[in-house]
Amino acid sequence: MRKLRNYLNDLVLRAYVRLQVFAAQEPVRLRAALTSVVMLFAVFAPGLAQEHTAQMIGGVAAVALPILVGESARRRVTPVE
């Protein structure tokens, strides 16, 4: 059991370090992803109570748009070192 706990702790630490490196190297892409996650919860959480197609399509567009805009902005912006 202790080996499993150590292994899981190691995985969490590695993921945390990779997230820090990603944030340092790709700040624009990270901001776009975080914006999409926030919009995902803001749009889809209320939409789970109802099944409106228009709201779901709007939600998909609202989540995908920051990612697409972030990718185009990333090409023009260099990360700060």
Rank of each mutant, 00 (worst) to 15 (best):
R14Y: 13
R75E: 07
V21K: 11
V80T: 12
L68A: 13
A45G: 07
A42E: 01
Q20E: 15
Q55Y: 12
L11E: 06
E26D: 10
T78G: 07
F41Y: 06
L19Y: 12
R5T: 10
T35D: 02
N6Q: 14
F41S: 09
T53Q: 04
A73L: 13
A64S: 03
K3Q: 10
R76Y: 03
K3M: 10
L19W: 06
G47L: 10
A32Q: 03
A15K: 05
A15Q: 08
D10F: 14
A61W: 08
V38Q: 02
R14Q: 13
F22L: 08
F41H: 08
A23V: 05
V69T: 04
Q20D: 15
T35N: 02
M39A: 14
I67D: 02
A33C: 09
F22N: 08
M1E: 12
Q55E: 11
L13I: 15
K3D: 12
H52P: 05
G59V: 03
I57C: 06
E51I: 12
A61D: 00
R14T: 14
L30Q: 04
H52M: 09
L8P: 01
P27F: 00
V43S: 05
P27V: 00
I67E: 03
N6P: 05
L68W: 11
Q55K: 09
A54P: 08
V28G: 00
V69K: 06
L30G: 01
R18E: 09
V28T: 14
E26V: 07
L19C: 13
P27M: 00
V77P: 05
L8A: 12
G59K: 03
S36Y: 03
E71T: 11
N6G: 09
S36E: 02
A61E: 05
R31I: 00
R5K: 13
L11D: 00
A62G: 04
L11F: 04
Y16Q: 13
P27Q: 00
V63F: 03
M39R: 08
F22Q: 07
S72F: 08
Q55P: 04
A45R: 15
A45E: 08
L4C: 09
T53F: 13
H52S: 13
L11S: 09
M56C: 04
V28P: 04
P27S: 03
V37L: 11
S36G: 12
L48M: 13
V77G: 04
P79G: 02
L30F: 02
G47C: 07
Q50R: 15
R76C: 01
T35G: 05
V43C: 11
V12Q: 14
V63I: 12
E81G: 09
T53Y: 11
I57E: 01
R29E: 08
A33D: 01
A49N: 09
E26I: 01
E71P: 05
V80D: 12
V69F: 09
L4F: 15
P46H: 02
S36T: 09
A54L: 11
A24V: 12
L65Y: 11
M39N: 06
L68C: 06
R18W: 09
A23L: 12
E26N: 14
L19G: 10
A64R: 05
A15G: 09
M1C: 10
V38C: 02
I57K: 01
L11Y: 01
Q25P: 03
V17F: 12
L40H: 07
E71I: 12
I57P: 02
G59W: 04
T78W: 06
